[in-house]
C-alpha cells in the first residue's frame, strides 16, 4: 500500500493547478462535494488514482491536524508532481474558493433573509446529504471489499466499526477522538487477523 502515496506520476504543474482550481471554484456545497469532485476527477476521469489509493490517502490525511481535505490535496499533489505539486495543488484549491468565500461574505448579509434564499439553502443541503452518502460509500467500499474477500469474520468486524460508531455517537455522544480510537483498534485487529489467516 505504501506505493499509493509514494509514486510520482507525471503531470505538469499547470495542469495540476488547473484541475485543483476548477474543483476549488465550482465545488459549491462543502466538503462532501469537494470529495465527490476529487474522486470524480482524479479516480474516474483522469485515472491518476485508484479507489484503494484514495482510501489510503484519506486514512493518512485524517490523522493529521487541520482541514482534512487540504491534507488529501497535499498528498495527491505530492504523489502526482512531488513537493512542488503539493504546494501547487493547495494553492489551486484554496485561492479560487477563498476568493469566492470572501466575495460571498460581502454580499450574503444583504440577501440572507429572502425566503427564496432560505428555500434554496434547505434544498441544497438535502442534495449535499445525498451526495455525501455516495462519497462516503465510495471511501468505505475498497476496505469493505477487502474484508469481504477475506471472509465472514473480517467483514463482520469491519462492519461492526460502522455500527459501533453509529451507536457510540448517536446514543452515548462519545467524542470523535474516541470514535477514531475504537475504529482504529478494531481495524488493526481485523487486519492482523486477516494476515494470520492468509498464512
Amino acid at each position: 500500500m505504501v506505493d499509493a502515496i509514494n509514486v510520482n506520476k507525471k503531470i505538469s504543474f499547470y495542469r495540476l493547478f488547473y484541475h485543483w482550481a476548477y474543483i476549488g471554484a465550482v465545488s459549491f456545497g462543502g466538503g462532501a462535494v469537494v470529495q465527490f469532485m476529487i474522486q470524480d476527477k482524479f479516480i474516474y476521469k483522469l485515472h491518476l488514482l485508484t479507489e484503494e489509493e484514495y482510501t489510503e490517502i484519506i486514512g493518512v490525511g485524517q490523522i493529521t491536524p487541520g482541514i482534512n481535505i487540504l491534507a488529501y490535496t497535499i498528498l495527491i499533489g505530492q504523489r502526482l508532481a512531488g513537493w512542488r505539486g503539493s504546494i501547487v495543488s493547495v494553492l489551486g484549491l484554496i485561492l479560487p474558493s477563498a476568493a469566492i468565500t470572501v466575495a460571498l461574505s460581502s454580499v450574503y448579509i444583504l440577501f440572507s433573509d429572502l425566503p427564496a434564499v432560505q428555500h434554496a439553502l434547505r434544498t441544497a443541503f438535502a442534495a449535499i446529504l445525498g451526495i455525501s452518502l455516495v462519497t462516503n460509500w465510495r471511501n468505505m467500499k475498497p476496505i469493505l471489499r477487502k474484508g469481504q474477500q477475506a471472509g465472514i469474520i473480517p467483514i463482520g468486524l469491519l462492519l461492526s466499526i460502522v455500527l459501533v460508531t453509529a451507536i457510540l455517537y448517536q446514543f452515548l455522544h462519545v467524542g470523535v477522538v474516541w470514535l477514531y480510537a475504537v475504529g482504529a483498534f478494531i481495524g488493526a485487529l481485523t487486519y492482523i487477523f486477516m494476515e494470520k489467516n492468509k498464512k
Partner: peptide, 24 residues
C-alpha cells in the same frame, strides 16, 4: 509494512465516513 498500520487507517476511514453521514 505492518498489517496493524493499514488496519488502523482502514478503521479510521470507516469511522470518518460513517461519522460524516451521521453528522450531516
Amino acid at each position: 509494512k505492518y498489517p496493524a498500520t493499514n488496519g488502523f487507517l482502514a478503521g479510521v476511514v470507516l469511522v470518518v465516513s460513517s461519522f460524516s453521514i451521521l453528522v450531516l
